[in-house]
């Protein structure tokens, strides 16, 4: 589905050149939930922006396997980045409105997404009237609006409180099961990565690179039970150990 071959990224020129990403190879299958975890400055967000096409690769290639689609990826930012002058419903509808989808179709889609994401009753609210968690829900709905096969999420829940974060994690898993999207989620929390991912990729900094990929052999569907599962706990501790040990 997503084929990343020898992708590198450098910023700046001459003496100011910074290697943000040394060659990364990655193969992501359709329907996988990939969690990328790493310290700040490891290039995980850069990698996500490269996949999204928000930055151009310096070298290598990224194949999303969906050239025919106008918008192959949905993207969820760290903060919701909703358009503050539009209501929740208008924000979710925005990707549809800007690709000439008839109103009757988009209305049905928006209603479906609002129910899926749990924002019923807030359709006509402005972003400033919502809590951080609710804004993030709306942002996820917007990313899903024109049904992209891939959903990219850049530390989507790092700005919300812990309890909301756990609720949103469960809802994200529900959405993933219902829609069968391929999800790539960047986080700095090893618990979140182990809880959500089917595979967890650990990256390290200076220079940014992919260190190791773990298969998260934890049964689906995941729930509160999962957090007591020894396989989950093992993975968390393994990830944490790797994150803390000095990089040679």
């Amino acid at each position: 589905m997503i084929k990343i071959k020898g992708v590198t990224k450098t910023f700046g020129v001459g003496a100011d050149r910074v290697n943000a990403l040394t060659p990364v190879d990655m193969h992501i299958e359709k329907g996988e939930f990939i969690a990328i975890v790493g310290p700040s400055g490891c290039g995980k967000s850069t990698l996500l922006r490269l996949i999204a096409g928000l930055e151009d690769v310096t070298d290598g290639s990224i194949d999303l396997g969906s050239k025919d689609k106008k918008r192959p990826v949905g993207f969820v930012f760290q903060d919701a980045v909703l358009l503050p002058w539009k209501t929740v419903a208008e924000n979710i509808r925005f990707p549809l409105d800007t690709s000439a989808v008839p109103r009757s179709v988009s209305d049905a889609k928006v209603a479906e997404l609002i129910a899926l994401i749990g924002l019923t009753g807030f359709e006509r609210a402005l972003p400033k009237q919502l809590s951080g968690g609710m804004r993030q829900r709306a942002a996820i709905a917007r990313a899903l609006a024109d049904d992209p096969p891939i959903l990219l999420m850049d530390e989507p829940f790092s700005a919300v409180d812990l309890l909301t974060r756990e609720t949103l994690n469960d809802e994200l898993l529900k959405i993933w099961e219902q829609t069968g999207k391929t999800i790539v989620l960047v986080t700095h929390s090893v618990e979140e990565a182990a809880y959500l991912g089917t595979r967890v990729m650990v990256m390290s900094a200076r220079p940014g690179r992919l260190r190791k990929t773990f298969k998260a052999d934890i049964p689906q569907p995941r729930s509160e039970e999962t957090k007591r599962d020894p396989r989950y706990l093992d993975l968390v501790s393994e990830l944490r150990t790797m994150m803390r040990e000095p990089v040679l």
């Binding site: 096409g53 928000l54 106008k70 903060d79 002058w85 925005f94 800007t98």
Partner: peptide, 26 residues
């Protein structure tokens, strides 16, 4: 304008007019 608004416009592949009317002007 918040740079992430520009990211959003790029992600949605907005036409120049759509970008002006829906994002930059407001």
């Amino acid at each position: 304008i918040d740079s992430r608004m520009h990211d959003l416009a790029r992600l949605l592949k907005l036409r120049p007019w759509q970008r002006f009317y829906h994002i930059d002007l407001p």
